[in-house]
Amino acid sequence: MSTSRAPTTRYIPVDADLARRARLRLLRMHYEAGVGHIGGNLSALDALLVLHHTILADDDVFVLSKGHAAGALYVALWSRGDFADRDLETFHAEATRLAGHPVANAFPQIPVATGSLGHGFPMASGIALAKRLQAEPGRVFVLTSDGEWQEGSTWEALIFAHHQALAGLTILIDANGLQGFGSTREVASMEGLGERIAAFGVAVREVDGHDHAAMAAALDSPPSGLQVLILRTVKGKGVSFMENQMQWHYLPLDDELYARAVQEVDAS
């Protein structure tokens, strides 16, 4: 089965070359598997690289709540050596553990299986609570989508996490503004999400979700309390014909488009 290794902590900054190589690997993995969800993976990839290269320590826990960005998570783990190329070649294949959404109990780096939205934040709250009750060190990070904030369970989790004062819990929101069948503005008037969350009494910050240094600085703050970090991102980031295009939530790449995408990213 998998050749994955134990989690490694490197604390290295993410530079443009690393991000470019990761984008290329993500595109190749999706192209070879013939699957979509590329747009939301590309919007989340930079944050996942920063988390896995610069932020996460051995005692920290990361939960991918937007499970459809599993590909970006697998590539982030590949980029720091936890997964090998032959692992990624099993993406979406038969008898794989690298399914389209993370599966349970497969890898220590992926402690929570997700896919249905609205589960990751409350589970991460349970993990943060367990750390407090057992006096364990480490922080908990969870990455949600912006459309995911239409799920009631996400707001339930916000109420709970704030009331319980869960220190060291950081919720990242991949705010690419597009969801499954429209923009978040069209579907559910989701503009002003930060203000709405802040109204619950939670600290909210916004940062460019493709600026590695800015994200690293925002995420590396001490675990003083619950915090929400809204990542302003672009769906399909890095591939011009995908950027801000809803259809790249679903579409796979054909030969011609894959070649164009690779050329663009390679030249970036």
Binding site: P111, V112, P122, M123, G126, A130, Q134, E156, F160
Partner: peptide, 28 residues
């Protein structure tokens, strides 16, 4: 004491929190 938690009228969250606790070895 602190291990008795009124999770409020939010059962979906309560179940996921319990799963998170159990994932860290706590009996929930």
């Amino acid at each position: 004491g602190e291990r008795f938690i009124n999770a409020g009228v939010a059962e979906q969250n309560m179940l996921s929190v319990a799963a998170g606790l159990a994932s860290r070895g706590l009996e929930a």
